[in-house]
């Protein structure tokens, strides 16, 4: 019974971190699916979300207003980034674009460091910090916020990408840029849209996790990489794949820390990433793609 309680707590803890990874991974997938770019600045949007919310709260705005302002700040950063660094490039190869996103992430991180210093900052919990008991295991009210917002975001974006014209147009761009252009889709606009969506989602992820993990200018690096792992496990899908990828990663990390050693926690994530890239680069859930010639 004792051992069962322990395992249950590991899984529950893993579930909570996994949900965060899923939400961040989701931001990667959105941009990838409409532009073919892997945006390594994704983690910085997460960081911006958390720090900007704290910034606005310290200016005595109420929490909901601060959250909206913070998302707006991060989204604006995403737009400026796309306009100044991605759009001006003509015929850039995916590799160039990926390198540019890495450069942008360093720039954004540096800016945040100058703006908010190197200290760690805290965001108060949305609804208290008294633990909730489920059987023998505990979670915090903030975890419930994370679960529900993750589910909401993913449901909403599924609707958007599968039902709305704009969503479908964005998918078309990812599939074939030229053809999408030929049927009258404004490809550039769709790319901009994808940056708006992913920076907004990224910053939201940063905001809901900040009360748990705290925030500083450099939290985006690790969270971004873990989110990337989640997205890769899920095969860069816009839906359930990334969610399952994130949860799987979170639970494996937590079980690994519990039963093997916490020193290998990050190693576990990256070993999974490498294995997936070696053996199933299309992700573990995606069926092999058949290309029509």
């Amino acid at each position: 019974m004792e051992a069962f309680g322990e395992i249950f707590q590991y899984i529950l803890s893993g579930f909570s971190t996994g949900a965060i990874y899923a939400l961040i991974g989701f931001g990667f997938a959105v941009i990838y699916n409409s532009t073919g770019i892997i945006n390594f600045a994704q983690g910085e949007f997460v960081m911006l979300g958390g720090l900007a919310t704290i910034f606005f709260i310290n200016m005595n705005f109420p929490l909901p207003v601060s959250v909206i302002f913070a998302i707006a700040t991060a989204t604006l950063t995403g737009v400026v980034f796309e306009r100044l660094a991605i759009r001006p490039l003509k015929n850039a190869t995916p590799l160039n674009l990926v390198l540019i996103t890495i450069g942008a992430s360093i720039l954004i991180r540096g800016g945040a460091m100058l703006m908010w210093g190197k200290d760690t900052h805290v965001l108060p919990s949305f609804s208290g910090s008294d633990p909730i008991y489920i059987a023998d295991a505990t979670i915090l009210p903030q975890h419930l916020w994370i679960f529900s917002i993750t589910v909401l975001i993913i449901a909403a974006s599924r609707m958007f990408f599968n039902r709305s014209i704009t969503g479908k147009a964005m998918r078309a761009c990812a599939y074939n840029r030229e053809a999408a252009g030929l049927v009258g889709i404004d490809v550039k606009k769709m790319v901009l849209f994808s940056f708006i969506i992913s920076s907004a989602i990224g910053s939201l992820a940063g905001i809901i996790i900040a009360p748990l993990t705290m925030s500083s200018y450099d939290v985006g690096v690790m969270l971004g990489l873990k989110g990337f792992c989640a997205a890769i496990i899920g095969g860069m899908s816009n839906g359930a794949g990334t969610v399952i990828g994130g949860l799987l990663l979170g639970i494996l990390e937590s079980l690994g820390a519990g039963f093997i050693s916490a020193s290998y926690k990050d190693a576990i994530a990256f070993i999974i990433l490498l294995l997936i890239l070696f053996f199933r680069p299309e992700g573990i859930f995606r069926k092999d793609e058949t290309e029509r010639v």
């Binding site: 322990e6 590991y10 939290v219 690096v221 937590s254 820390a257 519990g258 050693s261 916490a262 020193s263």
Partner: peptide, 20 residues
Amino acid sequence: NETYGPKDTDMTAQLTKIRG
């Protein structure tokens, strides 16, 4: 005798182990 990484944001796994 457990450890954690300098940038880790969740130590519940280690603490659960210690609890046992």
